[in-house]
Design a protein around this nucleic acid. Structure first.
Length: 781
DNA sequence: GCGGATCAC
DNA sequence: TATGGTGATCCGC
């Protein structure tokens, strides 16, 4: 056709497929198919979006190429063996085939558009779409004749159909209508499964049985909702879903519950029609000559060798016409997120502000469902549509804006630092919380909290250990198991248990303190610190972890004696009570007052750390004043004291630079144990000093402080892990060339190539540097 | 546990 | 001018 097709045929086909245009249904009153294609491509070509689509397409092609090489190495022996194994499994599946259920899939036609047309009859004979100039949710059938589809940006739709009316979405309205419809559906199956506002599965097996006994007049109608809808009736969900797609619009289709009917239905069914087979899987299977379900069945042995077990099992289910016969109710949610697209934002300050807003929104949503989680993930999409996610898991659950933001902001900062001095040019940001505790976790947590509070109450009279048996057991178990884990897992477990212990025990019982592993380390570490400070004549103030009193300029022996005396002595209740008091009251205060503005004091402090890190990482850079990004940020966020603070840092026993830069200094239990408590100027309020970054945290909320420590630790680990990446990123990206074996010059891949999902073949298999780099189009023509 | 990807709606 | 938001899952590290 045109040159575009030769170069970008794949993308174009995908695009057209997605927009439903290569089914020959376009035409008649609307636009000619070719005309539609041309308009879409004209609007798309040259955009950043398109550039990214091409990039993604190349990656998929690479995956396919890897797969084909994998395939080429399969021997007939292996294939025969696989055939036996797969057929054995197929036999089992066949035997468990269940045709006793009647599943209906309900799909409301162009739902949003239908509702809008119902409420405004003027729209009825006009082409309409619901959405915005950026993105359409759906369109009516009139508009579809012009090629206007869901998931198409409105501005392109307008080019296809200038008279198109774009109606802004009104989800409350759609929800209301959806609820009405669902009430009707519930009559047929009270346990129906709603997939969205306009889609649901019903298991009407029981209903049909009961219906047998109904009087004739009552049986004469079936589902009547007043809305146009598709439905498909079949013995399982997979088939029902395909059925409802069959006779559009406003149609119905049934697959009878016998094996032959199922197999006949499946026979020529394109695999893409099946839920779960998307664009990429379709393309990969097409590369293996598989388009229909019959072909999928024929290649089952090969597929078992090329794909993961999960995948080929899924494929086998499909090719046998099998699917769920019961509607599994949704389990508990596993994550909650907020994300937003916007016009480019490149200023760090604005990015942090945005991040905090998202955290706030997320925190509100979480509160509605009473959820708390341990993993915070941020998502960034740059103006070139490249997506990154960065996650951090802390040891205790978080849920408030402040807690989530404390973590998210560090993740964001790491990314900003990594690209420094270039700004991140973002078009989307998102924040997600996951790792919600299961019921058992919750019970455990509950007990810990109660234990903590009880210990606080009782500390006046009879302080006792709040380190519960479960905690101890798990701590010991985690140590026991630790040799089986990876290095980082070990470190994680160590710090998790150590600083939980540290916080709990320091406030309470001396007996358990003495036996506590972490406390032994704590003592040891403090001694070491004391020694070094003595040796360097550096007069430091040490605070006794038991009584919290400052021990100034005393010898190591004296300090030890003091600690031991505190441990043996009768009265620590006063001090531990003081701690409990300050914790309890400050938590209250925190809840009410500590909703800090964009950048509070502690934010500034954090920012200063950031500045210090930047100075260390980019020591060759000009002064702050000459660095626009830095100067701006400093102006906005920081006072002028960062340099003095920086100068004072080396005298501290442990700091973030050491943590991040020393290759062997990934955070260890000992590091945690160097945690020191220093009294602030405020009486009865302990200032919390982070043992990692060594900065005093101006919060008295222990959870928030814990989060900060976790974040600092993760940051150390993250930077350790990312060292290579950062180095790579700091190199000039263009013109990075290398020579391969064949002597040709190629661009070096910026990122290490990985095999794609759901596949077994390994990317570590070296790609042949020869002609095998043909496109697969040629191969499969 | 992390990060990239795929998929559905 | 301009190509979404939410949630789940899988795979290889």
């Amino acid at each position: 056709m045109d040159s575009t097709k030769e170069k970008n045929g794949n993308y174009k086909d995908d695009l057209l497929l997605r927009m439903g245009l290569n089914d020959n249904k376009a035409g008649m009153e609307g636009l000619d198919k070719d005309k539609i294609n041309k308009i879409i491509m004209e609007a798309t070509k040259g955009s950043r979006f398109y550039g990214n689509e091409l990039k993604k397409e190349k990656q998929v092609n690479q995956r396919i190429e890897n797969m084909m090489q994998q395939k080429a190495q399969i021997t007939s022996q292996q294939l025969r063996k696989a055939q036996l194994q797969v057929d054995r499994y197929a036999m089992e599946l066949e035997q468990s085939r269940d045709l006793n259920n009647t599943i209906v899939h309900i799909d409301m036609d162009a739902f949003y558009a239908a509702v809008e047309m119902r409420d405004n009859p003027e729209l009825k004979d006009k082409p309409i779409a619901v959405g915005s100039m950026s993105m359409l949710s759906t369109s009516n059938y009139y508009a579809r004749r012009f090629g206007v589809r869901a998931a198409m940006p409105g501005f392109i739709a307008k080019r296809l159909c200038p008279q198109l009316i774009i109606v802004p979405p009104n989800f409350d309205k759609y929800r209301a209508v959806s609820t009405e419809v669902k009430e009707i559906l519930a009559d047929y199956d009270p346990n129906f499964l709603a997939m969205s506002l306009d889609e649901a599965y019903l298991n009407i097996t029981k209903h049909l049985q009961e219906r047998q006994n109904w009087p004739e007049d009552k049986r004469k109608y079936f589902i009547k909702t007043g809305n146009p809808l598709e439905n498909g009736i079949a013995p399982n969900t997979m088939l029902a879903k395909v059925c409802s797609d069959k006779n559009k619009p406003n149609g119905q289709y049934q697959v009878l519950p016998n094996r032959q009917a199922v197999m006949d239905f499946i026979k020529d069914l394109p695999i893409r029609k099946v839920s779960g087979i998307g664009k990429v899987t379709e393309k990969m299977l097409k590369a293996l000559g598989i388009i229909t379900c019959t072909e999928l069945y024929q290649q089952r042995a090969l597929l078992s060798l090329l794909f993961s077990e999960t995948s080929w099992h899924h494929f086998l289910h499909i090719s046998l016409g099998l699917g769920s016969t019961h509607l599994a109710r949704d389990g508990e949610r596993k994550s909650m997120s907020v994300e937003r697209t916007f016009s480019e934002i490149s200023k760090a300050e604005e990015q942090y502000n945005l991040c905090q807003e998202l955290c706030s929104e997320l925190a509100q949503d979480l509160q509605k469902e009473g959820l708390k989680g341990r993993t915070v993930t941020i998502k960034l999409k740059n103006v070139n549509f490249e997506v990154k996610t960065r996650a951090s898991t802390v040891s205790s659950v978080v849920s408030t804006t402040e807690e989530i933001f404390a973590i998210a902001k560090e993740l964001l900062r790491t990314e900003i630092d990594a690209d420094f001095p270039h700004p991140l040019r973002l078009r989307l940001m998102g924040v997600r919380l996951s790792s919600f505790p299961n019921e058992e976790d919750k019970r455990h947590q509950q007990r810990s909290i109660i234990g903590f509070l009880q210990a606080g109450n009782q500390s006046q009279s009879a302080p006792r250990c709040i380190l519960e048996n479960t905690d101890k057991d798990q701590f010991l178990k985690s140590l026991e198991m630790s040799h089986k884990k990876s290095f980082f897992d070990k470190k994680r477990s160590e710090r998790k248990w150590s600083h939980q212990d540290t916080f709990k025990c320091e406030a309470v019982d001396k007996q358990s303190l003495q036996t506590s592993h972490s406390f032994q380390v704590l003592k040891k570490k403090m001694n070491e610190n004391l020694e070094t400070s003595e040796n360097s004549n550096n007069s430091q103030i040490f605070t006794c972890p038991i009584c919290f009193r400052e021990q100034k300029s005393i010898s190591l022996e004296a300090f030890n004696k003091h600690v031991d005396a505190c441990l043996d002595g009768p009265s620590i209740s006063g001090t531990s009570n003081m701690f409990s008091h300050s914790h309890a009251s400050s938590t209250e205060v925190n809840k009410k007052e500590n909703v800090y503005p964009s950048f509070s004091q502690s934010e500034k402090q954090d920012y200063e750390t950031h500045q210090r890190n930047s100075e260390i990482n980019f020591i060759e850079l000009p002064e702050t004043e000459d660095n626009p990004a830095k100067a701006e940020s400093v102006d906005a966020l920081s006072d002028k004291h960062s340099k003095e603070e920086c100068a004072s840092l080396p005298s501290k026993p442990f700091n973030i630079e050491k943590c991040c830069q020393n290759s062997s200094s990934t955070v260890s239990l000992e590091d945690i144990a160097s945690l020191s408590w220093q009294e602030s100027s405020q009486p009865y309020l302990q200032a919390l000093v982070c043992p990692v970054c060594n900065l005093e945290q101006k919060t008295s909320d222990l959870t928030l402080f814990n989060v900060h420590v976790d974040v600092c630790l993760n940051k150390g680990i993250i930077q350790e892990l990312r060292k290579d990446k950062v180095n790579l990123a700091n190199q000039p990206r263009e013109n990075t060339k290398s020579t391969d074996n064949s002597g040709r010059v190629q661009k070096t891949a910026t990122k290490p190539k990985r095999p794609g999902l759901m596949t077994k073949y390994s990317a570590s298999k070296k790609t042949k540097p020869n002609n095998s780099r043909h496109t697969l189009d040629v191969f499969f023509k």
